[in-house]
């Protein structure tokens, strides 16, 4: 009589243990942090973090597959900043968030296949070069260069949009088009182009700051 009882207890314990060892397939603790690569709880029709991440990721991967940019005998000097990247859309955004992410991502991934010129730091470099040459500061450790690096290619581009609204429902729709072009700084030839486009529709536009 005792044996079946002991056996049933052991089986029950094993079953209970097995139930405990299943995947706890429940939601995690709530947090204020959200994945910037996925749309968050505040969604609108404008350009958002997931769009910036997706477009820059797509562009940099495409640039690295172009032999003229990423497989040249001499790695080209590339300037990527927002100087010639214009926002003509109805989205309020800091265009530096696009060009900065593109430059940083490309610089980290290129691994010597391209060289990057910080033209937006040209003033900072010129001031330090002057101080060194005037003897105000010492020559530091790196050998002196004849001049700052010139660029072979520079990024240009444009953000445009097309808005439409249904006055009856308040529904708003926006088509966003972002073009990226790499321009030869000697001939003005466009050596690479990329386009990223999407349309969004929402009941009411949210406020972008």
């Amino acid at each position: 009589m005792r044996r079946p009882y002991a056996l049933s207890v052991a089986i029950a314990a094993a079953l209970a243990l097995a139930a405990c060892q299943r995947v706890d397939n429940t939601a995690g603790a709530p947090t204020v942090y959200i994945d910037p690569g996925t749309s968050g709880p505040v969604k609108g029709v404008g350009i958002e973090s997931q769009d910036v991440i997706a477009m820059t990721d797509q562009m940099l991967r495409d640039m690295l597959s172009q032999p003229r940019l990423a497989n040249a005998a001499m790695p080209p000097n590339v300037i990527i900043d927002s100087e010639y990247f214009h926002n003509e859309s109805s989205s309020r955004l800091n265009k530096n968030s696009i060009t900065d992410r593109l430059r940083v991502g490309l610089n980290r991934a290129a691994a010597g296949r391209m060289q990057f010129v910080g033209r937006h730091y040209a003033d900072m470099v010129a001031k330090e070069r002057d101080l060194k040459r005037q003897g105000t500061v010492d020559k530091a450790t790196l050998p002196a260069a004849g001049a700052q690096k010139g660029g072979d290619y520079r990024l240009g581009g444009r953000i445009t949009s097309l808005d439409s609204r249904d006055p009856k429902t308040g529904m708003m729709q926006r088509y966003n088009q972002i073009i990226f072009e790499m321009v030869d700084l000697e001939t003005s030839e466009i050596v690479w182009s990329g386009i990223y486009e999407f349309a969004k529709a929402a009941q009411d536009d949210i406020i972008y700051r």
Partner: peptide, 8 residues
């Protein structure tokens, strides 16, 4: 492989 050796 693409012309630059990356993978598509």
């Amino acid at each position: 492989r693409t012309a630059t050796g990356t993978v598509e």
